[in-house]
Design a protein around this nucleic acid. Structure first.
Lengths: 348, 348
DNA sequence: ATTAGCACTCTCCCCCGCGGAGTGCTAAGC
DNA sequence: GCTTAGCACTCCGCGGGGGAGAGTGCTAAT
């Protein structure tokens, strides 16, 4: 029974402290914990237990003669016990259905809604990473001539995601030639992932001068220019920043500033969101490692969404370390499931 | 000489108070003003003048025996005198050139950069309203078939702006038919504004069943579905929120919250940005009327950008009422001019 | 009209002392 | 040996008091 460093009463006390602290934000004293425990014990007993928990690094005191609050380690252990018992709150399915309501034109729109939903349901900051374009399926390409020998390339993924890029031609091409090139690319490559298409086109380009004839060569060249580069870039969207402002833990100006800066540079969350994105486990990052240093006082709860076994991106909520984990986890998982379902249905 | 309610020494004192208050944020006392004035006067004299300025509604006292700070009216009068003497700071042309540096693929990208520039140069919040799609020139349209008899319509403006919409077909069409329809629309309507195209297509749709043959009818119908609706919607982008957080005037939680809420709903600024957008005068709104009520403590400095005499949108900075107007005005005007120039060059 | 002088007002800040909450320890009880 | 009642101690937070400083309005003199 001693597998975990703490067990039985110790665990109960820790959970009580964490939950109470999450609720009120004030350090929790021994008498309060004694009242909170199901078992009838005296505050003195609780004090002994708490002293030990502090020694083990699960609790800390802001100062002598204040109550205790959880350390990161304490939160971690609490969250793990949440997962272990597997029973966290359930989420009202109504808003999730509204996510599915009217069909979004593109996946971006769908993800934006999911992000708002995360923020609203959790009353925290919603974070969603979009699938890198490289992972979407090539459906269509179109070239629109601009002035000055430049061409606007429009790449359409099956998900409805659209990418534009301006390409400069080495020699002028007519609208008809452009159309033929586009048709050629679609005929030949539609249905593969953009990553595959980009790789293949790049390969062909090196051989092209030898074996391919006029229009094909032009098509390949155009395709290479249109698909080169930033296909792997991950877009991150964020909603619900305002909910943080009123939080007492961000009373210190600098802390709030740090979070808001992240929000202006959401890309800083990419490492945290993708590095941890394996399989279907919900992850909880408690103010450390893959999170930017400025978010020391924050936690991120994330899950992945995808289609047909492939992970496409992450949904997450971000908030102060002192956040209602049970609810947050439930919200994140519910949104992840709904998003996956919708994407699978619409195709990616 | 008594055209304005105040003149001569009164004006000098008011300007001194406003400038000093903008600089430090503390109410300004009579001795300080006396030192600031070019003319050598005693603090007692200044006191008399200040008492009168307060009576006229240009200054106010936070409490007896504090210095004075400007009222809205005071700011207004100060700003007008700035315009009257017409000499405000000049702006470092270097960053503006970087705006023109590498050519943006679409106008949205250009405006985003302009917005960031506004924020950086002014150290306030940058605000830019994009031209409504209706005002852009129709260049190209393309239809991509999706599953389930739905079609993704991609409308391209000459500016490079792209709009997507999913359209549901009443009867299935082949890729070839879709291409023919797209070609028809481009041949017939390219070069007109989207607003004109939308109107014309809608007109034709009502007559179409009588006079037009198969493919034309289909094309018109598709065009109408693709262009209907929200063409007049104005997109507003915002950058540099974080610069407000550290500002002492937003120490009160609620004030900061109000501003951040606006930033999550930038559309609330549309009335202020468009209602005031006539001609080429730079406008200064000081925490009132067309601004949302929550921005009572803020000012907006805005100018319009455009091409060939046509106003396309606005660039602006937003900050607390106590902001460095001379600099802000200079920045806004410089960015407006640069943006107009670039848009004119690239075509809209 | 301007200014020196003066009494008055109000804020800000520091300091002090107190009550309350919570702890750790000890000794007694089961 | 674990639990618990009792107790002394610590430390934060809060409200009041007092002084310094900044600024004002008024009056009287120039």
């Amino acid at each position: 029974m001693q597998r975990t460093p703490i067990a039985g009463r110790g665990a109960a006390v820790l959970d009580a402290v964490v939950e109470r602290f999450i609720l009120t934000g004030d350090p929790v004293g021994s008498t309060r914990v004694a009242r909170l425990l199901p078992e009838r014990v005296s505050s003195a007993t609780v004090r002994n237990v708490m002293a030990e928990l502090e020694h083990l690094g699960y609790l800390e005191q802001p100062h002598t003669s204040a109550g205790r609050k959880p350390t990161r380690r304490g939160y971690r252990r609490y969250v793990e016990s949440l997962f272990a018992q597997g029973s966290y709150a359930s989420v009202d399915p109504q808003p999730l259905r509204s996510l599915l309501q009217e069909e979004p034109a593109e996946i971006q729109e769908l993800l934006r809604r999911a992000c708002k939903l995360l923020a609203e349901l959790s009353e925290l900051v919603g974070v969603v990473s979009a699938p890198p374009l490289a992972d979407t399926v090539f459906q269509h390409i179109d070239f629109v001539p601009l002035e000055g020998g430049r061409v606007l390339a429009i790449v359409v993924a099956r998900s409805g995601q659209v990418k534009n890029r301006v390409v400069t031609l080495r020699e002028p091409m007519s609208q008809e030639q452009l159309d033929r090139a586009a048709h050629y690319l679609v005929r030949r490559f539609a249905g593969r992932s953009l990553r595959q298409v980009a790789r293949r086109v790049a390969e062909l380009l090196t051989e092209a001068s030898l074996r391919l004839a006029g229009i094909e060569q032009q098509a390949i060249s155009l395709g290479a220019s249109s698909l080169g580069g930033d296909l792997d870039e991950t877009e991150v969207m964020i909603e619900g920043t305002t909910s943080l402002v009123t939080r007492p833990e961000f009373e210190a100006r600098e802390d709030l500033l740090a979070v808001l800066e992240i929000i202006e540079q959401p890309a800083e969350l990419v490492p945290a969101l993708s590095q941890e994105a394996d399989g279907d486990r919900t992850r909880v990052l408690i103010g450390s490692e893959p999170l930017p240093a400025a978010l020391g006082g924050c936690s991120l709860i994330m899950a992945t969404y995808g289609s047909g076994g492939q992970v496409l991106g992450s949904v997450a909520v971000l908030g102060p370390t002192r956040l209602p984990y049970a609810r947050a986890i439930a919200v994140v998982e519910a949104v992840a499931v709904a998003t996956s379902a919708l994407i699978t249905e619409l195709g990616i």
